[in-house]
């Protein structure tokens, strides 16, 4: 069966504040596939996920990105979100004065409105979100607190995954979701991600370390360095990177 890929990135160049960070990324993500993007610090991994989510600070200088066959780069961040692109932030934002539940319910209803679906009311929302919180073993009290305010690092990351579980996106971008998590938090976050795995849902896991991939097995692994993909392989590539580090790949690529 000929199926349009969910995401096609073609020769993508992007810069921020005059510095070119992405220097020709090409990547195709099929429907239902899980890709891991690994690489040393400063390789452009986080930039790639921010660019895909539509962060206005980045300027696209070349290339194109098709999402469900449409030009993703022309879409506003909120339109991307409503069309199913979800970025789990590396550094989730604290917003004092906005409750976690108001935030999440409004986000859900904005997206439902976009899809022409009726809004969920307060009771339906609480039922839904409570079930999702159980998957992540999250304390329901966090719902009534201000968004991420005073949350621990692990609570913030779990809260990102909670949003993902409630919004049920088509493309999940996880930007260093494993960073700063202890073993237990990593296991619960991974459980949430695996819970969401589905034939129609694709994921890009951006990570520095192998350890997330112990819990979530990707279909493909790409190594990003200096703004380019220098190696792609299967799940076994992660093990090799764990043993040998990135230097040998950089040397092979002449970087």
């Amino acid at each position: 069966m000929d199926q349009t890929p969910l995401l096609e990135i073609k020769n993508l160049h992007a810069r921020v504040a005059g510095h070119e960070i992405l220097k020709g990324i090409s990547l195709t993500i099929g429907v239902g596939e899980i890709h891991a993007i690994m690489g040393p610090n400063g390789s452009g991994k986080s930039t790639l996920s921010q660019v895909l989510a539509g962060h206005p600070a980045y300027e696209i200088t070349q290339g194109e990105v098709l999402y469900k066959g449409r030009n993703l780069l022309e879409m506003e961040p909120e339109e991307r979100a409503c069309e199913g692109v979800f970025l789990a932030f590396q550094y989730p934002i604290e917003i004092p004065g906005v409750s976690n539940s108001y935030f999440l319910r409004t986000a859900l209803n904005e997206q439902r409105k976009h899809k022409g679906l009726p809004e969920v009311d307060g009771a339906e929302f609480i039922e839904l979100v409570t079930k999702r919180m159980e998957v992540l073993e999250m304390d329901p009290a966090l719902l009534s607190r201000s968004l991420n305010e005073g949350f621990s690092g692990g609570q913030k990351k779990r809260n990102e995954i909670l949003q993902m579980l409630v919004l049920e996106p088509s493309l999940c971008l996880l930007d260093e979701t494993d960073s700063g998590l202890d073993i237990d938090a990593l296991r619960e976050v991974s459980k949430g991600v695996n819970w969401l795995r589905a034939p129609g849902r694709s994921m890009i896991l951006v990570t520095h370390y192998q350890r997330l991939l112990d819990h979530i097995t990707p279909d493909h692994i790409h190594v990003l360095a200096k703004g380019r993909i220098i190696r792609s392989g299967g799940a076994e590539l992660a093990l090799e990177l764990e043993k040998r580090g990135y230097d040998w790949l950089l040397a092979e690529a002449g970087l």
Partner: peptide, 27 residues
């Protein structure tokens, strides 16, 4: 207005106008 917070809300589906309104009210 905090640009990071604006982007965060928009990345969850809030329109620019409603993201701004939410942040102003929060303030």
């Amino acid at each position: 207005l905090d640009e990071k917070a604006l982007f965060f809300l928009r990345a969850r589906g809030f329109s620019l106008a409603s993201a701004r309104a939410v942040l102003i009210r929060a303030f």
